[in-house]
Design a protein around this nucleic acid. Structure first.
Lengths: 107, 107
DNA sequence: TGATTTTATGTCATATTCGACATTTCATCA
DNA sequence: TGATGAAATGTCGAATATGACATAAAATCA
C-alpha cells in the first residue's frame, strides 16, 4: 500500500470513527492529516449552516462541485491553501481558522 | 502590476513595517497573506531558536536552502502545506500552529 | 415507488508548487 | 580590508494540485 492511498484511507476513516494514526504515517504526517480533517469538517459545517449546495459554494469560490466534495472528504489531492481560501470566502476570520485547528484532534 | 507581483511586494513589506492591505487585494487575499506571514515568522523564529541554518533545516525537511528562504520571505510560490509541514517537522503541535494563526495580525 | 437534486468518485489537460542549482547579496570576523 | 559562511533571488524540469467534465451513488420528496 503506497503512502498516498494510506492517507486517503485514513482520511475516510474519520467518517466512521476517529482519526487515528495508521500504518506508516509518521507523527507529522498524522498531525498534518488531522489538521486537514479539522478544516474539512469546518468547511462542511459552514456550508451547511449557510444552506449552500456544493455546486453553489463552488461558484462562490471559483471552483467545481467535485473539488468541494474532495475537500470535504479530505482527499489527499487537496491543499491546505484551498481549504483555507474556501473558509475565508465563507467569511471566517483568521482567528476562527486558528481556533478550528486547535479544536481538532491534534497533538 | 499583476496580482502575483503585488502579493510578493506586500509580503516583503512586513520586513519594514506592518502587513497592510494593498492595491487590489480582496479581503480574503489579505487575510490569507497575513496567515502565511504569521507562519513564515514562526518558522524563522523556531529555526533560529534551534540554531539551525537554512541549509540545515532544508536537510531536515528534505527541501533546499532556497525554498526555506522563500518560505521565510513569504514568497507567493510557497504553499501553506509546506509551511505547516515544516513547522510540524520542527516539532510544533497542531495546537501551536493554530495559536500562531490566531496570534498573527488577521481579521 | 420514480423523478429530481445533491454528493461522491474517477480522469484529464493545465496551472501551480516543488527541489535543485547557480548566482548574488549580506553578515561576521580575522 | 578580504575571506568565509549564511541568506536572498532567479530559473529550470519534475511533481503535484487544479478546475472541468462525466458518471455513479445517495438523498430528498411527490
Amino acid at each position: 500500500m503506497d503512502k498516498k492511498k494510506a492517507k486517503k484511507l485514513e482520511m475516510r476513516g474519520w467518517k466512521i470513527g476517529d482519526a487515528s494514526d495508521f500504518l506508516g504515517l509518521t507523527q507529522e504526517e498524522s498531525v498534518y492529516v488531522d489538521l486537514k480533517v479539522a478544516l474539512a469538517l469546518k468547511l462542511r459545517d459552514q456550508r451547511k449552516r449557510k444552506r449552500l449546495t456544493q455546486t453553489a459554494l463552488a461558484q462562490a469560490i471559483g471552483s467545481s462541485q467535485s473539488r468541494i466534495a474532495k475537500m470535504e472528504a479530505g482527499d489527499p489531492t487537496v491543499s491546505l491553501d484551498l481549504l483555507v481560501k474556501s473558509l475565508l470566502t465563507l467569511g471566517l476570520t483568521g482567528k476562527e481558522i486558528g481556533e478550528t485547528l486547535i479544536g481538532g484532534k491534534n497533538g
